[in-house]
Each structure stands twice: as structure tokens, then as C-alpha cells.
Amino acid sequence: MRRESLEQSDVSLLDILDAVLDKGVVLRGDITISIADIDLVYLDLRILLTSVETLIESQNKPREGETVNE
């Protein structure tokens, strides 16, 4: 019962990534991350954006192929 409260300050990095990354995240490789000085979460997979919403473009249209591996 670590996250009883609904305060945003209790939101973990993973919650944030789950919300702010388009289509969530895919993981591969080995990474250890520490979250908010409390949780040490071991990730045996590496974080990768599946669909960076990079609307980088010089023309008027969003670039094709934004969704990778989805």
C-alpha cells in the first residue's frame, strides 16, 4: 500500500511515462532506475518510445511512419 493518496506527488515515473508517452512504452535491455528517491525499480528491458509523436516536418503534412513497431 504505497500509494494510498491521490496526490500527484505520489505519482511514479512509470505512471508519468504511461500517461505522457504516446502508446506507452516498450522495454528491452537492462536498466535500473530509481524513482522519486523511494522506489528502486529494476527494469530488465529498455525503454523505447513506440511512437514518438514527432511531428517534425517541413511540408504541411505530418510525416508518415510515426508509429514504430505497433
Binding site: 505522457v20 508517452l21 504516446d22 518510445l49 514518438v52 509523436e53 514527432t54 511531428l55 517534425i56 516536418e57 517541413s58 511540408q59 504541411n60 505530418p62
Partner: peptide, 17 residues
């Protein structure tokens, strides 16, 4: 809100969107 990493190359490209 836009997702993390939403980037435009120029002001014009943003405006056209």
C-alpha cells in the same frame, strides 16, 4: 495536452497543423 516529444520544425509547420 500533447504527448511527450511533440516537435515541430518551424513556426510555419506548427501553424499549418
Amino acid at each position: 495536452p500533447l504527448k511527450f516529444g511533440t516537435i515541430y520544425e518551424t513556426k510555419e509547420s506548427l501553424e499549418s497543423i
